[in-house]
Nucleic acid binder design. Structure first.
Lengths: 235, 235
DNA sequence: CGGCAAATTGAGGTGCCTCAAGCTCTGTGG
DNA sequence: CCACAGAGCTTGAGGCACCTCAATTTGCCG
């Protein structure tokens, strides 16, 4: 949370407030739903630890993941306007999540303009990420798409201190990668093998995985401007 | 604009303000760029008439459309946080677009809370649309995707009074449909033929086209909850 | 050690793409 | 009013990327 809020200068009492709110938090197991499609949106969630994802299951039974959430992300700041959730949110790894009631959140936004600004500042970034995701889904091959997603995740992980220069803990199963990239578990497997062959990534199965420097993965087509802009924390 | 702002009750002086700002506007030809990728974001744009789209061209030369904008939409309320545009915006049909300088916009948002609220209220809807778009791209067949997009556009057109109960002016060429749906112009053509065969849509080429009632297109897989919620203007 | 989820691997099919023509409008200038 | 150009739409044939089905292996956990 503090990490994300580097978007804006925070005063000491802003930080104090954040820490206070954040103290009340709950643990979620990997693969546990935080909120389900159809639920009436309740409080605002803030991810403190672990990864989560937004996903939707179609009538056909297939699943599509539309976003990965990392520590510092808050969910549905204002989704309350919609009558009910049009998708679900699920913890990927064991996660710690703070809960803030809607009224409380409103007070915070009113009384702490810095925090409000930071939260609104986070939004266009999420939107840009979604637009990039759409571009990937529409116009990139499966291998490019996979490499691109890894770059995206690497950059984000790094911006909140979860990644070194040349590797980072990658908690995504092939299954969830496939659901995020719009392909089959079978196929993502072959794609990963190919990426490994080309020396772009190095994944170790099962347990948390390692990915090589972005430079290599770039080969597979990450928008460098976008990347640099974000690594230089214009972000 | 007034149309979109049915999200929130507007007082008479809100409306007056909108009309004043809106008076200064400029005409764009079909296919003309409003702002290009790489540009430094300037003023805020508000679409008054006609359709526009956000798109991005990849190194490979293919294009992906990621959003359609309809009258009432404002572009990049706060993209200014990003250093430069990561995509372009282009008029699809001849369009009328108002321009509001960033400082002016800030004043409006500060002084007219109703308007500010309406603008922020519009955002989660756009986000939901993008999420739905991602789901389509990832997990729907080309024919479902096409039908889904048409439903989406129909609902939106209708919500701003641009569509009847059973038809609406559809200004999208097959080319742009293909770019939006992540497929080939050749293939969208065959898909449209198939939709026609199945009685789901009826398109007349070239000039503005007609689409049959959603009920039929639903056959191809539109989320009914989502639909109803929006038709019953929970939207 | 047994049970389960995830990862792998193979074989066969298909949806969508590519390439390549030909067609149909609309607009423009002679 | 006609010819011509250009953009968009159609149609066909062949190929590849990714899917489906199905089985096996691997690693994790109680």
């Amino acid at each position: 949370m503090n990490k994300l809020s580097k978007l804006v200068e925070l005063a000491p009492d802003d930080v104090a407030m954040l820490e206070a709110v954040t103290a009340r938090s709950r643990k979620y197991a990997a693969r546990q739903d935080v909120i389900c499609e159809g639920d009436r949106p309740g409080p605002v969630f803030v991810l403190l630890e672990g990864w989560a994802c937004r996903y939707k299951i179609l009538p056909s039974g297939t699943r599509q993941v539309m976003a990965f959430l990392m520590p510092g992300h808050s969910c549905d700041l204002h989704v309350n306007i919609l009558a009910e959730m049009d998708h679900s949110i699920q913890a990927i790894s064991p996660a710690m999540i703070a809960t803030i009631s809607r009224s409380e959140m409103q007070e915070i936004l009113d009384d702490y303009p810095n925090i409000a600004r930071a939260m609104y500042a986070a939004q266009p970034i999420d939107e840009a990420t979604m637009r990039a995701w759409i571009v990937s889904m529409g116009r990139r091959s499966s291998i490019e798409r996979a490499a691109y997603l890894m770059c995206e995740l690497y950059v984000r992980a790094r911006s909140i201190g979860l990644a070194d220069d040349d590797s980072f803990a990658f908690p995504l199963s092939q299954r969830i990668l496939a659901d995020a990239l719009g392909m089959t578990a079978v196929h993502i497997n072959r794609v990963l093998k190919e990426l490994q062959l080309r020396g772009a990534t190095e994944l170790n199965r099962g347990s948390p995985d390692i990915i090589d420097p972005i430079k290599r993965v770039q080969i597979a087509g990450f928008d460098e401007n976008y990347l640099h802009r974000r690594l230089n924390n214009t972000f």
